[in-house]
Design a protein around this nucleic acid. Structure first.
Lengths: 159, 159
DNA sequence: CAAGATTGAGGATTCAATCTTT
DNA sequence: AAAGATTGAATCCTCAATCTTG
């Protein structure tokens, strides 16, 4: 019934909170990063030239433009990212991962994977994970919010 | 592989954002409530006597004590909830839903169900919903965060 | 004027400190 | 002293307005 749908949503909400909290705890002690900061570094590291436009980043993380400006502000302040402009179109600002950013990412990468595994993956079989992903994809596609690059990035292992 | 787990988590994150946004939009226009505010009203409406302790509410919504204090502040300001104290233990504060709160809930209830259905349930079969819920429950139980009352409340239809 | 990004103001949440009652 | 709740300071986010370049 409809009740079942509502409770499924309730459980998704709770799972989100619980798992995120666990991931952020691990990331915090290992690299002093929030989950969002880690994801920016991870996205930049696999991008062509180690850089992405601000708007592209905001889109990938489902964040507002101004939210991304502030997030990058923090990363620049920590020396993990630079802002760059190319002469071709000087309206566009690129965020570019620094050498220091790549080494921070190496540390946070393991913490992140640990966090995901501990709170999320450990209790699910490989088949469960596949099923879960298939269902979530169905939801996202159904509401028109699936984008290959955002939802299914090729994750390079090499940093 | 581990990649698959990470992407499953990524998709959960995105689904959470997308569905929540849709629900809040519906709740906003229909009743001027956020999702958290709606859930407080819903929890109070099915509770014995229409009231719950602040700490119990915070636990149900996975919010901090102070976060719940402020959330109830807003609901009291809107006249949807009252604060009460019983003589048995005057340290405890109860949030109690008002008549006005119940009528607001009647409006927000439908909007909420619509939002869940539209962004979340519509694209999943009944079997899919059941499967999804089973997997999420597995995650929550595995990490020791499943609590029957919080994760599987009996949802009375009568308000 | 439109696109891309940043800034200012305001809202929601958390941690640590405080207040009241037991 | 401990339990329950609130308050103050700080963080992070969003919306609307603004600035710069095309």
């Amino acid at each position: 019934v409809a009740q079942e749908r509502i409770m499924a949503w309730l459980n998704l909400l709770q799972t989100h909170r619980v798992v995120l909290e666990s991931i952020e705890a691990k990331l915090g002690v290992a690299a002093g990063l929030t989950a969002a900061e880690h994801e920016v570094l991870a996205r930049l590291a696999i991008a062509e030239g180690g850089r992405l436009r601000m708007l592209q980043l905001a889109n990938l993380l489902l964040l507002s433009k101004s939210g991304m400006t502030r997030l990058v502000d923090r990363l620049v302040g920590a020396g993990l990212v630079n802002r760059t402009t190319l002469p071709s179109d000087r309206r566009v600002v690129y965020a570019e991962i620094t050498r220091s950013g790549r080494s921070a990412l190496q540390r946070s990468m393991d913490a992140f994977a640990d966090g995901v595994d501990e709170a999320f993956g450990r209790h699910l079989s490989d088949a469960d994970v596949k099923t879960l992903r298939r269902l979530l994809r169905k939801v996202l596609e159904g509401s028109g919010h699936w984008e290959e690059e955002r939802c299914s990035p090729r994750l390079r292992t090499a940093v």
